[in-house]
Every structure is written in C-alpha cells, then in structure tokens.
C-alpha cells in the first residue's frame, strides 16, 4: 500500500485539526507542488528538530554525542549501529497528536509526515531496507494497525516485516519509567533471517524515548546477519 491510496480518502482537510484546507498560493508551493496535509496553524506548531542535535540519536540541543548515546556505546552489542534520525521533538502539541493518531486510532494522520520521512530517508539512509518495529499480537488486535508499519508504508520503498514480537506480560511502554524500559526484554525474533542478511537495515518506529526498543531490535537484526542497522523515528522524546 502506498500513501496515495491512503490519501485518496482524507483529502482537503487538515489531518491534525480537521479544518478545511485553504491553500495559500505562494511561489514556493506553486513551483514545488505537493499537496498540503496540514493547515497553516498546525504547520506553525510543529515541533520540528532544527539546530544542533546529537549526531547519533537526534536528541535536540546537543552538539556532541549525548550522554545516553555514550552509555549505549559502552554497553553496545550492536556494533554495526549507525544512528537514529528523528523529525520532531515531543511537546504538548505532539502529545495530543500522538494520542489521536495511536490511541484513538486515526491512522491516516501519519500521512502528514510522509514527505518529511521520505526526505530524511533519501538524505541519510538511501539503500537501507525499512523494517517496522512490530506490535505484540494482542495490542495489534486491540489497535487494529501497527503505527510503525503505517510510517514505513510512507517511504515508498518496499518494507520488510522481518521482526516478530511474542506476547508479553507488562503494560504499555508509555506507562513505564526509564529504568523499567531499559530492563524490559521484548524478545524480538527474526523468523526469516535470509531476507535481511547482508543488507543495511533501517528500523522504523514512531517514537525514540530511551532507545531501548530500537537498540534491542538492532541487536537481534545484527545477530540475524544484517550488515548494519540504523533507525528512523518520527519523534525524539
């Protein structure tokens, strides 16, 4: 599925606030034509990461590699890790956005960021194979869609569902503390390692908080033979 089929539906309205879109005609959008998905007010409120950010995890306001990444380096078993790139910070606006997107289940809202994700992919990860982080089966039943897969679909590059996640006890990650997250073992498996062996793999997820999920999947993918691993996430909290 590509984004044009996704967007054949939700057209003409701001994907975030539902306002009818009034395209303002500027030279910019006249010559570089792409359909707007957000209204001007919402575009103005986007917490885009600009300026200095950690080169390894996109954490905002770091010039050097941040402390989190240094501690990952010391512990790292994923030696062929490249970096994480994120598009946005996590602020109140983004929190409200995620709540509607993920927890209310408004999947198409992700299409507003497809252009940004594609651009980041081309700039940083050309040639990588996208692999969305899976959901546990029960959560998938409840939510009906995998938010990471919805993001991966927007890259317009064939993605591979290489990872699998078993059913686990324990609640949502968004309800856990940092320590709990780092200690949780998600138990990802790679059922068919031949698809990714020898290739550069790009892990796709919605949010990078402690990095625990992404790093664990990177480790599993490298063990299964990936040449290198990196991640592209929408939000860096």
């Amino acid at each position: 599925m590509n984004d044009s089929s996704l967007l054949s539906f939700a057209r003409g309205y701001c994907l975030s606030c539902g306002e009818r879109l009034q395209t303002s005609w500027t030279y910019n959008n006249l010559f570089a034509w792409r359909a707007a998905h957000l209204c001007d007010t919402c575009t103005g409120q986007l917490p885009t990461i600009t300026g200095p950010a950690c080169p390894e995890c996109s954490a905002p306001e770091h010039v050097e590699v941040c402390a989190d990444c240094l501690s990952w380096r010391r512990r790292s078993e994923d030696v062929r890790w490249v970096k994480n790139v994120s598009l946005f910070h996590y602020d109140d606006w983004m929190q409200a956005w995620t709540a509607r997107w993920k927890f209310r289940g408004d999947a198409v809202m992700a299409a507003a960021f497809y252009y940004g994700l594609r651009r980041a992919y081309r700039q940083h990860f050309r040639g990588f194979v996208p692999v969305p982080v899976p959901l546990a089966p029960l959560r998938m039943q409840e939510r009906r869609f995998n938010q990471a897969e919805v993001l991966a679909a927007g890259l317009k590059v064939p993605y591979v569902l290489a990872l699998e996640r078993p059913e686990r006890e324990g609640g949502k990650q968004s309800k856990q503390t940092k320590r709990e997250r780092l200690q949780t073992v998600r138990g990802f498996t790679v059922p068919a390692p031949e698809i990714i062996s020898g290739r550069n793999v790009l892990i796709i997820d919605d949010i990078y908080t402690t990095g625990a999920t992404v790093r664990e999947s990177a480790q599993v993918l490298e063990a299964a033979g990936a040449a290198s691993t990196a991640s592209l996430t929408l939000i860096r909290a």
């Binding site: 599925m1 996704l6 054949s8 539906f9 057209r11 509607r100 408004d106 939510r143 009906r144």
Partner: peptide, 22 residues
Amino acid sequence: GLFGVHACACGRERCVYCRECL
C-alpha cells in the same frame, strides 16, 4: 474527506474507518 484507511489486523490491506465520529 472524513474517512481514513489503513492495513488492518482483520487482514484487509485497506480497511476503512470513520474520522468524523472517532
């Protein structure tokens, strides 16, 4: 303009949902 679609756990590639009464 007020419907959405996504790959769904029900197995459909394009499962339609309503955004108006979400």
